[in-house]
Write a protein that binds this DNA or RNA. Structure first.
Lengths: 99, 99
DNA sequence: GATATATTTCGATAATTCTAAAAATATAGT
DNA sequence: ACTATATTTTTAGAATTATCGAAATATATC
């Protein structure tokens, strides 16, 4: 993963509302949750919520699947894993390290 | 770790220059690197670099230790580990999960 | 005390992001 | 076609953050 792409993902997680959205989805798991359910959970105006969700989608941390009128938001665990792996990668490649 | 504190740490990592600073220090390892060495590595004006480093320090991802005129920046691996752990915690506590 | 090196603070401008009301779109049922 | 529900897009003002030159501070050496 390139640095700028990782930075974007981290920046999206680095906002309290988006972090709460993402962590709620992490808790819910693979089946995901409808936008409306996230709205009930977090008590954020719809337009604000939609803005933040679309940012999370834009970096791939969430995927959306529509079931008629309901839009399910599904956390992408593999994208999160890759990001976490990136942060720890190349540790101490330029020195000896206790890790 | 509370959500807002985690969000702050993620936001600091979510900037290309700060991510490059932090990852350089991760590569260097526990002995850290002087501000000047980071500056040579990244080619950023001193005032800009200082600003970004102090933000990383403010959330605990970096610690600084002075040796006479030289200020060493040392990555705090435990803070990173805690953050990563937080992101993955409570996974699927509200549902069955493949993970 | 003068000079050199290392790093930060100040200050000003530019750029980006946040928030949420209002309007628009999409889908389904009557 | 009309109504209801679910969600997004548009828009605009407020707030925050980014950048970097210049000046300031800290420490060491001569």
């Amino acid at each position: 993963m390139e640095n700028d792409i990782a930075a974007k993902k981290l920046a999206e997680l680095g906002h309290i509302t988006r972090l709460l959205i993402f962590r709620y989805l992490v808790k819910v798991g693979d089946q995901g949750a409808p936008v409306g359910q996230i709205q009930d959970e977090l008590d954020v105006p719809g337009s604000t919520l939609s803005h933040h969700i679309s940012r999370l989608v834009s970096v791939g941390l969430i995927k959306q699947v529509r079931d008629s009128r309901i839009l399910y938001c599904i956390p992408q665990f593999d994208v999160l894993d890759e990001l976490v792996e990136f942060l720890k990668s190349e540790c101490c490649t330029e020195a000896k390290c206790k890790q």
